[in-house]
Design a protein around this nucleic acid. Structure first.
Lengths: 112, 112
DNA sequence: CAAACATTCAACCTTTTGGTTGAATAATAC
DNA sequence: GTATTATTCAACCAAAAGGTTGAATGTTTG
């Protein structure tokens, strides 16, 4: 699996996106992360492992506690891949613009 | 499933990302899309349906042929979600910058 | 040392995913 | 009107995903 595959797959789950969002505030332990979710700690632990596997999260062990922090690199990769298409959607807007211009042209013709 | 879930999940598969990439060139039929892939036409047809379900692709039927074209909206949604974290990764770079500045400061101290 | 805590591991279950093959449907071409 | 072409539908399969529970592993605390 490519790193882009892993990043997109990791971010496809809403629980994991919420985890990512919460980690922008700073480091949190697995238990802290699990607290607001209506699922077992084990389930959250698994989600964290998926994020870790995608490189989105880094783990720092301190005694029995594991502190997680966000790694931005995979998010940048996703942003980079996606932004290829900015060109495309601007182009579509341009095409719409050209179409509207054409319409206006025709309106002018009609009024002559 | 939220539209963001669907978009991320759809883009997590490399075959589907390749399909998206090819569709920036313009409309293609299912058969055209399937041609370069080492899998059955049926498999590609399924992938197209996933992309369609995520709103990334729109289908136009013309006789027995189905023409697919790219819809940019979900890509924009993904870009928008991801760009929230631009702030975050710039901040990390800033933190690195501050760290390096601090190092330099200490170097100066040492040289006094 | 014993109890409590933070976390993972392992086994299990159900649903989804990504692929296959074979048949159905519908439009086109000869 | 019979092939051929474009596509989907349906059934099936293996593997992965997302969850559960229960036990194991370490670490901290009393």
């Amino acid at each position: 699996m490519s790193s882009l595959d892993l990043a997109f797959a990791a971010l496809a789950d809403p629980t994991r996106r919420r985890i990512v969002a919460r980690l922008t505030r700073g480091e949190l332990r697995v238990t802290d992360l699990a607290q607001p979710f209506a699922m077992s700690l084990n389930a959250v632990s698994k989600h964290v492992k998926v994020l870790e596997g995608a490189g989105l999260v880094r783990r720092r062990r301190e005694g029995r506690e594991h502190y997680l922090r966000l790694r931005a690199a995979p998010l940048r990769e996703v942003a980079r891949w996606t932004s290829q298409y900015e060109r495309f959607w601007n182009q579509r807007l341009d095409a719409l613009g050209a179409f509207l211009d054409k319409q206006t042209e025709n309106d002018d013709e009609g009024s002559q």
